[in-house]
Amino acid sequence: MRQVAAALASEGPAAVERVAVHKTVLMCRPDHFTVSYRINPWMHPEKPTDTALAVRQWEELYRIYEGLGFDVELIDPLPGLPDMVYAANGGFTLDGIAYGARFQYDERGPEGPAYMDWFRSHGFEVVEPVSINEGEGDFLLVGERILAGTGFRSDAGSHDELRRIYGREVVTLTLIDPAFYHLDTAIAVLDTVSHAGAGNIAYLPKAFDEASQQIIRDLYPDAVTVNDDDAAVLGLNSFSDGKNVVIASRAVGFEESLRERGYTPIGVDLSELLLGGGGVKCCTLELRR
């Protein structure tokens, strides 16, 4: 009996049957994508970018989402805003309420009002931000809990705004590695509901300070940890419906870990958009009405 119990325990999360949850997302075509300034370690304006290639790669991500049955809504890209393709930074939506973004850098500042205008015109109650925050780049809904990043972009004050707006538990996590400047580059939400409603994640431990690492270990004992190689291609900047996980095609170790746990990883090449410091999740803002 002990051997049977040990074998079942060793199977762990892999024994769970994964169930896909329908998603509605907002995206923005990278028609104006380029790297003309540097606001993160990934960006090198002196190196050429290929806007047409960025569009083709983005279109493949769009087709994957359509193939998964997602509802994909679009916001019009605006000239002079090359990072507007990273829709996740445009705000955070939950319970029909959109908490707008207020960007750290002036270069991206006009994106905040543009996304808030879109939210208003599509039926969301919009709350304009007081504190600096970069939307779902730093706010991730996992089950009923919101994980909120700080350290490089979003102020901790925005976490208090989240608590007041949504009445949910908000857990502050501090990022310490400049290459992983948004929470969605260091954590991937794998399940919105599992383990008594807590959800589950994958993450890169070294992206966080020690106190935050302990919080993550306590909250998500079954979390997947990724290696440096997979993190370096923004493998964690992924999007999951609870069963299918769209990831960077070069994140091969992460892909293997997902398969072992019963997920279906779907690789996509967004290498051109990586030049701006973004990947799958950066291009994807979940709409929760």
Results as ranks from 00 to 15, higher is better:
residue 103 F to I: 03
residue 137 G to M: 09
residue 138 D to T: 09
residue 191 D to R: 08
residue 157 G to Y: 13
residue 205 P to D: 04
residue 182 H to N: 03
residue 135 G to I: 08
residue 176 I to Y: 00
residue 115 Y to Q: 06
residue 175 L to F: 06
residue 202 A to S: 03
residue 158 S to I: 12
residue 129 P to C: 08
residue 101 A to S: 15
residue 179 A to I: 00
residue 99 Y to E: 02
residue 156 A to N: 07
residue 123 G to P: 11
residue 163 R to W: 05
residue 148 A to V: 11
residue 127 V to G: 04
residue 108 R to N: 06
residue 193 V to G: 00
residue 204 L to C: 01
residue 150 T to Q: 14
residue 159 H to P: 09
residue 147 L to D: 10
residue 162 L to V: 13
residue 157 G to K: 14
residue 139 F to E: 10
residue 116 M to I: 08
residue 109 G to L: 04
residue 119 F to K: 09
residue 184 D to H: 10
residue 117 D to P: 05
residue 166 Y to S: 03
residue 107 E to M: 00
residue 133 N to G: 08
residue 113 P to V: 12
residue 151 G to T: 08
residue 188 A to D: 00
residue 204 L to I: 03
residue 196 A to M: 12
residue 117 D to W: 09
residue 129 P to Y: 06
residue 155 D to M: 15
residue 135 G to S: 09
residue 186 A to M: 05
residue 149 G to F: 09
residue 174 T to M: 04
residue 167 G to I: 00
residue 158 S to V: 13
residue 132 I to H: 05
residue 156 A to P: 10
residue 119 F to V: 12
residue 130 V to M: 11
residue 116 M to V: 06
residue 103 F to V: 02
residue 145 R to G: 08
residue 180 F to M: 07
residue 98 A to T: 13
residue 179 A to E: 02
residue 100 G to C: 12
residue 202 A to P: 00
residue 169 E to V: 11
residue 137 G to C: 11
residue 171 V to C: 14
residue 164 R to D: 08
residue 149 G to C: 06
residue 111 E to M: 07
residue 179 A to T: 01
residue 204 L to Q: 04
residue 146 I to R: 03
residue 181 Y to P: 01
residue 134 E to V: 05
residue 199 G to D: 05
